[in-house]
Simulated scan of single mutants.
Amino acid sequence: MRSGSLARYIGTRLLLAIPMVWILLTMVFVLMRVAPGDPVSAALGARLSADQLAERRAAAGFDAPILQQYWDFLGHIVRLDFGRTLTDNRPVTDIIVENGGATLTLTLAAVILAVLFGLPMGLHAGRRRDKPDDIVIRLFGILTFAAPVFFVGLLFQLFFGKALGWLPTSGQASPVVQATVETKTHILLLDTIIAGDGEATGDVLKHLVLPAVTLGLLTLGVLVRMTRVNVIQTLGSDYVESARARGIPDRTVVVRHALRNALVPVITVMGLQAALLLGGAVLTEQTFNWPGIGNQLVDYLNNRDYTAVQGIITFFALVVVLISLLIDIINALVDPRIRY
């Protein structure tokens, strides 16, 4: 019965994801076309003649009626074809494959750091409500959430990179490592591990520290505050008081009973933070010259290459929907009541 209800819940969520994806794709398509003129003229108008511009518009399909452009756009996305850039005529899919590994490494490292430090801090603050350590943790959570990610990154660069000289301040690895490590997965850290080059792996990890901590602090503040609030609410519930009355050790009550139930809204909020994390990744990649998709997105924005921007933003939108779906499934596994 339980497995059936879970399968039914997952099926329902998959069906609900279809209109969500359609709405997001439609919004991206419309927003990329509200500006006056057309993308080809915006990106290449100063470099091509009128005849060449007309030829490029026809090749890109921008001379077709708007509804035809819309259906072509949806048809390409279904085939996971995100279009081609105007400035350098590259498939956007190639950009995602080649630069996505760097963005994935950065975001995963940031999430891991946020979870490893945010959950214990929020749990401790919830157990020590209104005590001095709780106040310090709350202030820390507010500051990390409110501080602009690029400003924190610059401070880290100045202090840990320039003043102390402990860590590198830009790039994904040293030029020697990038030139010598064979690209197999487009994830440089994984490629160094596969190559068995411990020195190169250490170099990549050193370059990862500052950008990962900078981006992780953005999520850590939210995680600390949400965990604290939900732990406080859960510790005041009847079943927790009943467990304590039966003589169950306080640590067991907190970890096995209170924390598990407090995690459900925390997991939901973490899923909602996916869009914020991707936005923070764009700023972090720019600050640390990190060769990810976000860095490429800013370059194409500066060049007014709207077809490249459209493809990358569409990919980000699909990632957010996928993460939202995964979060719903994880919540159903943690709390069976959600399935019904």
Rank of each mutant, 00 (worst) to 15 (best):
Y300H: 13
S49Y: 07
S49L: 02
T284A: 00
P168A: 00
D72H: 11
L158R: 09
L167S: 00
V309P: 12
L318M: 14
G280P: 13
L215Y: 09
L215W: 09
F145S: 10
F73K: 11
D328G: 03
V136Y: 05
T307R: 13
V320Q: 12
G198C: 08
N303P: 09
I95H: 13
T85N: 09
P132Y: 01
F150G: 11
T105W: 10
L6F: 15
V136A: 08
L210D: 01
F140Y: 03
Q310S: 12
V320Y: 08
V321S: 06
L301M: 15
T185D: 01
M27E: 04
D134P: 04
I313G: 12
V152F: 04
I112S: 13
V21C: 09
T105Q: 15
T287S: 01
Q296H: 10
F82H: 12
L318G: 14
T12Q: 14
R246V: 07
S41C: 01
F140I: 03
L215S: 13
L277K: 14
F117M: 08
M270T: 11
L108Y: 14
N261R: 13
G279D: 03
H124M: 01
R127P: 02
A275C: 07
L301C: 11
I232F: 01
T307C: 02
M226Y: 07
R260C: 01
D335M: 08
L276C: 10
L190F: 11
A60W: 06
A212L: 07
A64R: 15
Q157L: 03
N99W: 10
N302I: 10
A275S: 15
D63W: 01
I10V: 15
H257K: 07
A147D: 03
L218V: 14
D81F: 00
G118W: 05
A195V: 05
A102T: 07
I312T: 14
V136T: 04
F315D: 07
P336E: 07
P265K: 02
L190T: 12
G45Y: 05
K206T: 06
A173K: 00
P132K: 01
L259A: 03
A147V: 13
V97N: 11
R225Y: 03
L139K: 02
M226E: 05
N289D: 05
F73V: 05
P39H: 09
M32G: 14
G247D: 04
R33G: 06
S242N: 10
L188G: 08
L15R: 15
I112C: 14
P19S: 00
P65H: 02
L189W: 02
F151M: 07
I248H: 09
T314G: 13
L74M: 12
Y340L: 14
L217Q: 09
D203T: 04
V209W: 00
L25W: 13
W166G: 02
L106W: 08
I194V: 12
L218R: 13
V264I: 15
T227H: 04
F150Q: 05
V298I: 15
N331R: 15
L15E: 08
G141Y: 02
M32F: 09
G37Q: 07
F159C: 01
I18Y: 09
